[in-house]
Design a protein around this nucleic acid. Structure first.
Length: 423
RNA sequence: GGGGAGAUACCGAAGCGGUCAAACGGGGCAGACUGUAAAUCUGUUGGCUCAGCCUUCGUAGGUUCGAAUCCUGCUCUCCCCA
């Protein structure tokens, strides 16, 4: 399958430089996407980029993952309305290490078009300021750089020289990849267009080459908010940071209106199957959503993780699930539930002495962030212990409430469920 | 270097000496309705030992019985002139 055709069909092309089509017809080519290690793990926001690389590789091309060991130290002003806090070198190194390993799951690092990981810190490590200013800074005028949207917006609100320089780094990165790896294509979100064209400009002027770029439309949600954030922050691809259960729930709780985009951006099913899903969105959004959630949970985590999440989700969200079903659960099932949903440990002795519900929510666990909030939630009829709504903020929980002498289920609202394990 | 404007809770934005934990909008959270969706309606949205107290209106001081509101220094941002 032709790469551009594939993207076109999925609606993943925003713009591209002239001649990109011809380049891609020309046998195996090398293309890259950059990732700055500003977060401890890749997120589903990054997953759009990962999909691009994957589709690129599936089409027979060679993907380069460019880790931003250098650019991460600077901070990209694109799409940011204010100057960013710089992360420490230690933190960035650690993130880079972790994220690099995550790619193993999504791309093929073997074979004729094996993916490779390059760190752009290598391009700058041995360069001093004067070299940089002469070799890199001389290529573009400040006038040209300032006319980029990403910079223009920030000239109103303030932009440090550091962040202003970011596009020089990204442009020079492209040049280095071009000369060292014969990389002729950069793919990325449309907010990066300015930085990319600086890159093709570098290659044209400095090494007399021709490089190309494709951008994808930024994935936005129907309600206008940014894709990839849940109420409680980022959805990470690492199971330690976002459990498979939460990951699965994220897709299941997605807005119907976003479903078509999600299928087109994230599914790797054969085209006929994808089309069948798309066709069924209107009549049966719930089952389509479930299938997408399944596909992604299996791919990002594992089949086993999905099975476990599914059984737990069905148990917890089953319409008929009431106090009796909960009490009827055997200990193994409860243990599985405890593994999947967020859980907290407390001392058995402490609980035996009786714990006030407000303290339990806000102090012994972080189900609520303050006691005031806990009280409000109780007043608003949001808190349930073992499927029983709590009406009184003086309510005390003690050992008699424990299921199988060990577990306690606490719900905040209908969707946020927690297990407290005593030990 | 000179002149002007500004910094308010998650964001935007009122307030300009007491009745201000601070209007209003957005966002968040919860309740009802639903499909663990959307839309809609309702409640709530600094902390606590909660009819009271404590900490918050860039920062440090000062005036006052009393300051987000007045004065001074400082920091930062934006605009104009050189």
């Amino acid at each position: 399958m032709n790469f551009l055709e594939e993207l076109q069909w999925r609606g993943m092309i925003h713009q591209m430089t002239p001649g990109t089509d011809a380049l891609l017809q020309d046998g195996m080519i090398t293309g890259y996407i950059g990732f700055d290690p500003t977060a401890p793990s890749l997120t589903i926001g990054n997953y759009v980029q990962i999909m691009l690389l994957r589709l690129f590789q599936d089409a027979g091309h060679r993907p380069i993952i460019l880790m931003g060991g250098a650019t991460g130290r600077i901070g990209d002003p694109s799409g940011k309305d204010k100057e960013r806090e710089l992360k420490s070198y230690d933190e960035l190194d650690h993130n880079l290490e972790f994220q690099s390993r995550q790619f193993a799951r999504f791309l093929d690092f073997e074979g004729p078009n094996a993916a490779i990981i390059v760190n752009n810190l290598d391009f700058y490590r041995d360069m001093n300021v004067l070299d940089f200013l002469r070799q890199v800074g001389k290529t573009l005028t400040v006038n040209y750089m300032s006319s980029k949207d990403s910079v223009k917006k920030r000239l109103e609100t303030g932009l440090s020289f550091t962040e202003f320089s970011y596009q020089l780094l990204q442009a020079y990165d492209f040049q280095c990849l071009y000369t060292q790896h014969d990389c002729r294509l950069q793919m990325v979100g449309s907010d990066q267009w300015g930085n990319i064209t600086s890159g093709t400009e570098f290659i044209r002027r400095n090494v007399d080459g021709k490089a190309h770029a494709v951008t994808t439309p930024l994935l936005t949600k129907a309600d206008g908010s940014k894709f990839g954030k849940s109420e409680r922050g980022n959805i990470w691809l690492s199971p330690e940071l976002t459990s498979p259960y939460q990951f699965f729930q994220f897709w299941l709780k997605a807005d119907d209106a976003d479903l078509r985009n999600y299928i087109r951006y994230f599914s790797l099913r054969p085209r006929e199957e994808m089309q069948a899903l798309l066709d069924r969105v209107d009549e049966d959004p719930i089952s389509v959503k479930a299938q997408l959630a399944e596909e992604l949970t299996v791919r990002v985590h594992s089949r086993a993780a999905y099975e476990s999440v599914l059984s737990v989700s069905e148990l917890l969200f089953n319409k008929k699930a009431n106090r009796d079903t909960l009490l009827g659960l055997d200990e193994t099932s409860l243990a599985t539930v405890a593994q999947e949903i967020p859980s907290f440990q407390i001392e058995r002795d402490q609980l035996a002495a009786g714990i006030n519900i407000v303290d339990l929510l806000a102090e012994h666990t972080s189900i609520q962030s303050s006691k005031g909030e806990a009280r409000r939630s109780i007043k608003g009829n949001a808190i349930a212990v073992n499927k029983e709504k709590i009406k009184d903020h003086e309510y005390r929980v003690d050992a008699t409430a424990l299921l199988h002498g060990k577990y306690l289920m606490v719900e905040n609202g209908r969707k946020n469920k927690f297990i407290i394990v005593t030990q």
